[in-house]
Design a protein around this nucleic acid. Structure first.
Lengths: 225, 225
DNA sequence: TAGTTTGTTTACATAAAGTTCACAATTAAA
DNA sequence: TTTAATTGTGAACTTTATGTAAACAAACTA
């Protein structure tokens, strides 16, 4: 389910938008202003941001700038009170993807969100999200929240990716060797243990997942979120 | 230079749009209706399509459907006579990326085209700005702030330009060889390393970007601004 | 509880990948 | 034509990843 962050200081409108999103199969999150939004974005992996421009503390433009600067690449849809060319120009320069003019037509909003997500999906396909942790298959990297993505050794990555792709599913060492090392691999089963150990060392204190030993059978990953 | 296809039966409007596009650094192509557009799309690699909805022979919706069915994935921007929700809904369903309502504001059109192209990740201009650093493709030069622009060796320039055109995207050595040296080049992959080394030597202490090695995969550029 | 099985951890050897250097070949400039 | 700049190569070197073996620890079993 796609996570949509609605940033809007008007409580009624916020509720209205949330409701419409929920009704259309999205998972809405809300924030009252840019600062609250940034906080939330650190913790949660939001797929698309819909933000009002005029807000207390931090307005829509500042929010956009902050996000792009922090290398967040999700689509941003700004809501403007008046249809002004200068505003739009400024927004597009900063990295805004689309505009809506108030009063908002929630049906149109749903359509635009869909179009933006569809377009954005093309960009990075092979990725896996667990809480605020994102595994990028192509970059062989792991990122937590807004932190810098870290590329990790291939075997470790594949192992983690496989386990997290099927949370709670138990994999035997043999299965993992067959799938990640190749059927004919002559590698010792203990090798899996060693890589598990390395992964645990790397991500021991993260709050998103844990690799569990299932004695006599193998290993599994569980989500903690 | 980006190729924009304008599909519009009104000759005057077509000219107006073409002119505006050309003036803003795009290469405009035109077609009078959907069928003519399809013909042209077969022959030319168009980056983005702007199409009127109401046209003889094949309208904007049919054109969209045909394109998506043929796996063309460029952004499509439809121009509608009236702002009707049903129309928009239909369009977004079919795979339209954005709408503009007539009468067209050409400035807004340029902005929307820019935003769509940026989102489509095709972004690549004739000059590229990273922080206070400017790469000029035509002059094959790099300039920092107000300093004198410095022309650098071609291979180094192309390499840097390519990497910075898609920040954070990882390129394999093979990809870079194919794209910068040509598909059939017999050059050793190590050669890329050598050029990377030279670039790093040249720009090691600049605060705008950095070339990162992604072990096992290739190289990527990251913006530090 | 002692012994057995299974899983964890460590240190190390080897392989794989990336960097650097000196130089030769090529191209462009003076 | 001479000189300088650019580009590619191969080998030495550095760093990182991976697998093995053995010691250690925990869990099960009789």
């Amino acid at each position: 389910m796609f996570k949509v962050l609605v940033v809007e200081d008007d409580g009624n409108l916020r509720k209205l938008m949330s409701a419409a999103l929920k009704q259309n199969g999205y998972e809405p999150f809300t924030a009252e202003d840019g600062e609250a939004a940034l906080d939330l974005l650190e913790k949660t992996s939001i797929d698309i941001v819909i933000s009002d421009i005029m807000m207390p503390n931090m307005d829509g433009y500042e929010l956009t700038t902050s996000l792009r600067r922090a290398n967040f690449e999700m689509p941003i849809l700004l809501v403007t009170a008046k249809e002004s060319f200068e505003d739009k120009q400024r927004g597009f320069m900063l990295g805004v993807d689309d505009y809506m003019v108030k009063p908002i037509d929630v049906n149109e909003m749903i359509l635009r969100v869909g179009a933006l997500l569809r377009r954005a999906k093309m960009a990075s396909e092979h990725s896996l999200v667990v809480g605020n942790c994102v595994l990028d298959y192509d970059a062989q990297s792991v990122r937590f929240g807004a932190a810098q993505a870290e590329t990790i050794p291939q075997k470790e990555f594949l192992l983690l990716f496989k386990l997290l792709s099927y949370p709670n599913k138990i994999f035997t060492r043999r299965q993992l060797l067959d799938e990640l090392w190749g059927m004919e691999s002559e590698v010792d089963e203990r090798t899996v243990d060693v890589h598990i150990k390395r992964l645990r060392e790397r991500y021991n204190s993260n709050p998103n997942f844990e690799i569990i030993t299932v004695r006599g059978l193998g290993y599994k990953a569980v989500k903690l979120v």
